[in-house]
């Protein structure tokens, strides 16, 4: 398993946001996470990459976890390539890491291959801020690849993108999973999730309420995640 989560709990000032989460993700698996606003999706992902400290529970990652965000977080004035190179900061010797001018040639080549994988090799020299939202998100994904990650977490990677760019980015995530990467992506578009992901998990009030192959997930399953009180009323 690339990711193994057991009994993950997170409280913010006494309020329970994650209430005992168990989740296994295998290499090559594309898991989409659905859930209403405030159900704890971001918190769960942030716990996995260490941006939040869990109150209790175990998290094991086999290899390295990378994360991309809805608000992309590239350095706009730097080139796409330099942004991708930053993915390697943790493994560079300090003195070669202080400025993009000092990045080793081998790293620039590796970063170029990552950009090529997301289809943006021809925009390598462009400042990130000049790329479209969808292209920027793909640069962020290339940066995650340059991190040599085995697990890619994506928190609403396409919520700010137009439908076509969103489709492209989610398709890219699916393709990367086919390469063997474990992908966990929070999506607010159930249709995208069902079309591209292999597996869908649903969070409801900090608990796993749904975990099924994407092909087996019904509209009713999805409705229950977003409107629990109404779905609880027995159907006529």
């Amino acid at each position: 398993m690339t990711l193994r989560v057991r009994g993950l709990r997170k409280e913010f000032g006494g309020r329970t946001v994650l209430d005992g989460l168990d989740l296994d993700v295998a290499p090559g698996e594309f898991t989409a996470v659905l859930g209403a606003n405030g159900s704890g999706k971001s918190t769960a992902l942030r716990c996995v990459v260490g941006l939040e400290t869990p109150t209790a529970g175990e998290i094991e990652v086999d290899g390295r976890a990378a994360m991309v965000f809805q608000k992309i977080h590239l350095v706009g004035r730097r080139s796409a390539l330099d942004n991708v190179c930053a993915g390697a900061l943790a493994r560079l010797p300090l003195r070669r890491s202080l400025s993009p001018l000092l990045f080793p040639r081998t790293l620039r080549e590796e970063a170029m291959a990552c950009l090529d994988r997301v289809g943006l090799a021809d925009r390598a020299a462009e400042p990130a801020s000049r790329l479209s939202g969808g292209q920027q998100q793909r640069v962020a994904i290339a940066r995650a690849l340059c991190q040599r990650s085995t697990l890619l977490l994506a928190d609403e990677p396409v919520s700010a993108l137009d439908p076509k760019a969103a489709e492209q980015v989610v398709a890219l995530l699916a393709a990367l999973a086919l390469d063997g990467l474990a992908v966990v992506a929070v999506l607010h578009q159930p249709s995208l999730a069902r079309h591209h992901a292999g597996r869908i998990v649903g969070l409801l009030d900090g608990r796993l309420d749904l975990d099924a192959p994407a092909s087996a997930v019904t509209d009713h399953d999805v409705d229950r995640l977003y409107a629990p009180d109404r779905a609880a009323v027995p159907a006529e």
Binding site: V49, G50, L51, R64, A65, A66, M67, F69, K71, I72, H73, L74, V75, A86, G87, L89, A90, L94, S97, L98, A140, R143, A144, Q147
Partner: peptide, 17 residues
């Protein structure tokens, strides 16, 4: 903007980096 800083933390950059 705290965003780029968080991105750096996730990819394991040091404080100086």
């Amino acid at each position: 903007d705290p965003g780029p800083r968080e991105a750096m933390r996730v990819l394991g950059a040091s404080r100086l980096q």
